[in-house]
Design a protein around this nucleic acid. Structure first.
Length: 271
DNA sequence: CCCAAGACCTGGCGGC
DNA sequence: TGCCGCCAGGTCTTGG
């Protein structure tokens, strides 16, 4: 479900309810997520004050004095802040109950998400320490993509979806960014010129910023911390638009398969 | 090291 | 209506 804009939208929605609050208790109904939920979360997080709610790529970081809760939403995860007495429904796997009668609740039907407790600084954790730059930071530009792509023969779409190259670009926004840059998704990453990577970096930045401004993309089941959907799906140029006319040239958008994921592109505008 | 494919899960949809 | 195969916003692991 969530790529960077949806995670950022979630972060903004939940942070005001969490920061400064104390964790009263943690309820784990099903620990079998992408990574098994450690019993240490239930043992060590209660009593901790939530100091900040940050994001790194698609990971949310709930930082406390003695550790951090690292949350990933996988394909189908969502977070809501609710009164602590709302009964759990199917797939409500983890509650972080606060000291003010509210709780943060994770729902994740497919269980590809994860909730990890770490005593170290969150950014040092194995899941985070090798991530690429944030696409909305100064450290991300076309030169970075160009240098990292030399010698690589995989398709550029799969290259930019690797979060060790750049974080937060998932299947929707990869197709959209390549459209904005006029680059064919199947082009070999190592055979793209620096100027085109500059356009691609700009396209990634643009699509992510616009999606955040629209509250993310809701295809079926994304809702922010307050239960509201995003609106960026109305701005999608190619994703999910197979057979429909390209907004720029009118030719039908093509759907293909790359690395077991769907890709969408305009065969005229993207080379 | 690089890359493609498999693995992990549930639910919704279209087709028969 | 029921069953079946396919599809879905991610990423870690495996094997060549």
């Amino acid at each position: 479900m969530p790529e960077l804009p949806e995670v950022e939208t979630t972060r903004c929605g939940i942070a005001p309810y969490l920061v400064g609050r104390r964790i009263a208790r943690v309820i784990v109904r099903n620990a079998r997520l992408r990574h098994p939920v450690s019993p240490l979360l239930v043992r060590e997080a209660p009593g901790q004050i939530l100091q900040s709610v940050d994001r790194r790529g698609k990971y949310l970081l709930l930082r406390c004095p003695k550790g951090s809760v690292i949350i990933h939403l996988g394909m189908s995860g969502s977070l809501r802040v609710l009164p602590a007495d709302v009964p759990p429904e199917r797939h409500d796997h983890v509650d972080i109950v606060l000291d003010n009668g509210h709780m943060l609740r994770l729902r994740d039907p497919r269980r590809f998400g994860s909730v990890v407790w770490t005593r170290q600084d969150a950014l040092q954790h194995a899941l985070l320490c090798d991530l690429g730059p944030e696409p909305l930071s100064d450290g991300f530009n076309g030169d970075h993509l160009y240098r990292r792509s030399r010698g690589r023969r995989l398709a550029v779409k799969q290259f930019i979806m690797d979060h060790h190259i750049v974080t937060g670009v998932g299947n929707i926004y990869a197709s959209e960014a390549l459209f904005l840059a006029g680059i064919h998704p199947a082009r070999e990453a190592g055979r793209i010129a620096p100027e085109r990577y500059e356009r691609l970096a700009a396209g990634i930045r643009q699509v992510l910023e616009q999606a955040i401004a629209q509250g993310g993309t809701t295809l079926r089941d994304f809702y922010n911390g307050e239960g509201k959907p995003g609106y960026f799906q109305q701005q999608l140029k190619v994703y999910g638009r197979a057979g429909q006319p390209c907004a720029s040239c009118g030719r039908a958008v093509v759907q293909t398969r790359q690395g077991q994921r769907s890709s969408f592109y305009c065969p005229v505008c993207q080379r």
